[in-house]
Structure formats: structure tokens, C-alpha cells
Design a protein around this nucleic acid. Structure first.
Length: 291
DNA sequence: ACCGCACCCTGAGCGC
DNA sequence: TGCGCTCAGGGTGCGG
């Protein structure tokens, strides 16, 4: 599931494919929740536009276009943004994976889950946006127009501060993990890195937010920054669907301390990692290391 | 203001 | 073999 590190790794690779190129063709699937801007309008708005920059805000990617308008992309749960030529078993259904050995998998061909294909005037690969569950989003934003989704975001999680967390938690009685997942507080933290950061900080996921001390908030902020930076360095986590835009896997999933390690020994104290549900999200923690 | 929950969606994995 | 059920979860919006 793409969170800040996966989106940032995607941004860095897609930037090379996208910036400086002019959209020639836009192919979409039919109208759905995926398209905040309807497919027809999207086509009209994008064709002929040159991309001048690709930025990230939390888990959103924002392509800046030459007329001052913007294209907003969110990968949701299963979104995959990649360049033509990428090959990975993660880009195929299990059914198709079974019929092909990974080495023999051909370069990706658009399928029914490929909701957006951009082609360009300049030489280079097409850009694909594939999303099996369609929790992802595509929106065109007019020049100078503020966007509600972006405006609601808190500070970027790479710049998390203890003060921001302390301020955000004073009146809130819900679990600290739920606060970390609140994009209006820290933008970019999702389920994996919330669990990982709370492990590094040594704090229980269910701890009521307003009971945290200033020092504990500082520890959590440090842990958030550290785990996100580390994951970016490793290319993000390829756990279910995430692949880098060139088709390669990230490497952080092999370093996880708690996420997806239910029953396995804690890397620090060997106590089995436990799984509970916090705020309707599966949550992993070490009962010994997190107090 | 805060917080829990339903909803959007599809595929994998399970029990029968 | 195959059906139907449950689960996964980011973000939005609603109702209490």
C-alpha cells in the first residue's frame, strides 16, 4: 500500500519520464469514483499540456502543467504508476502470474485495471496508472484554484515535529495510531509506517493521544522521520501491489520491525509480535518493547 | 470538535 | 472443482 516513501520513490522515477514532455494522448477506462475529473474532461484538459514539475504532498502527486493547471494523482491502496516497459509479476493478476514464470513475463500490456494511459509528443515511454481496487484518484485542478484535498493536509511527515504532534493530541482521546493516520496532522503516514514508527518510539499503538507527554511526542516525531527516510532509501515497501515505476520491488518490507510480522519474534527482544485492531486498522506491535 | 462507522472496490484465501 | 463468504484498507462524509 503506497504511503509517503512509496509515493516519493514513485515521484523521483516518474519525474524523469514525465517532466518536459507534452501530452499527446489520454486513454482512460469508463467514468468511476477513480475519476474526480470525468474522463472526457480530463482528455480535453491534458492534451497539448507540457509537464513542468512533479511534486508530492503527503501521499498525493501533483504534476504542474505549463498553463498553471495541475494534475493530482493519488495511488490509494493498490495504485501503480509506471512507465511502459516495466515488467513485474505484481503488475499481473494471480491467474496470469500462474501461467508465466516471472522471467518470462512480457512487458506490461494495459488491462482492465489500467485506468489512465498518457502518451507524449516527445520520444519515450507511455505512462500507465493501474489500480485494481480503484481507491486511487485522478483530478485536474484549474490554474490558481485551491484544492480541498491538498488544503486539508497537515505538515509533510518527513518534517514531523514533536510540537505538531503535541498540539494535535491535546484534546484527542483516540489512539495515538489513529492520530498518526490523520492526514490533517502529518501528511503521508499510513498503516505500515504508523506501526513501525510507534515501535521505534516504544509507545503502544492504543495509547490515548492526549496522555502523551511532550517528550513522547518528540520521540514519535523522530521515529516517523527516521522510518520514512529509511524506507525511501530502500525504495519503499513492496508488500502486496507496490512496485517502483521501473517494475522493480522496494526493499523495506524485509526490514519491518512489526508490520506483517504477527507471531514472529521481535527483532529486539524476541517476544512474539501481536496483532490487534485499532481504529478499524490491523495493527502490529511488540508487547514488550512498546509500553 | 471529536469520533466511530459505512462506503467506495476487487482479488485472495478460506471453508464447505 | 467451485461457490460464497470474509478480509484488506486510504480517504470521504455522515450522524451521534
Amino acid at each position: 500500500m503506497p504511503e509517503l516513501p512509496e509515493v516519493e520513490v514513485t515521484r523521483r522515477q516518474i519525474e524523469k519520464v514525465l517532466v518536459g514532455r507534452t501530452v499527446r494522448g489520454v486513454v482512460t477506462t469508463r467514468k468511476s469514483y477513480f475519476f474526480i475529473t470525468p474522463p472526457g474532461e480530463l482528455r480535453t484538459r491534458l492534451v497539448g499540456r507540457r509537464v513542468v514539475a512533479l511534486n508530492r504532498h503527503g501521499k498525493y502527486l501533483v504534476a504542474e502543467l505549463d498553463d498553471g493547471s495541475r494534475l493530482l494523482l493519488h495511488l490509494g491502496m493498490t495504485g501503480q504508476l509506471f512507465a511502459a516497459g516495466a515488467r513485474s509479476p505484481r503488475l499481473l493478476s494471480a491467474e496470469r502470474r500462474a501461467t508465466l514464470s516471472p522471467e518470462k513475463a512480457a512487458a506490461f500490456e494495459p488491462d482492465q485495471h489500467t485506468h489512465l494511459v498518457l502518451s507524449f509528443d516527445e520520444p519515450g515511454p507511455n505512462l500507465y496508472f493501474r489500480d485494481v481496487r480503484k481507491f486511487g484518484k485522478v483530478a485536474w485542478i484549474a490554474r490558481g484554484k485551491p484544492n480541498g484535498r491538498l488544503e486539508k493536509l497537515g505538515i509533510d511527515a518527513l518534517e514531523a515535529t514533536g510540537d505538531a504532534l503535541y498540539d494535535a493530541t491535546r484534546t484527542r482521546s483516540l489512539a495515538i495510531k489513529s492520530v498518526l493516520l490523520d492526514q490533517g496532522v502529518l501528511a503521508g503516514v499510513g498503516n505500515i509506517y504508523a506501526d513501525e514508527a510507534l515501535f521505534l518510539a516504544g509507545i503502544r499503538s492504543k495509547r490515548r493521544a492526549r496522555t502523551l507527554t511532550r517528550e513522547e511526542c518528540e520521540r514519535i516525531a523522530v521515529a516517523v522521520r527516521k522510518v520514512l527516510r529509511r524506507s525511501i532509501t530502500r525504495g519503499g515497501s513492496s508488500i502486496d501491489d507496490y512496485v517502483r515505476p521501473d517494475g522493480s520491488d522496494g526493499g523495506y518490507q524485509t526490514e519491518c520491525f512489526v508490520y506483517g510480522r504477527t507471531g514472529e519474534p521481535c527483532r529486539t527482544c524476541k517476544t512474539p509480535i501481536r496483532r490487534i485492531v485499532v481504529g478499524q486498522r490491523s495493527t502490529h506491535f511488540c508487547p514488550e518493547c512498546q509500553r
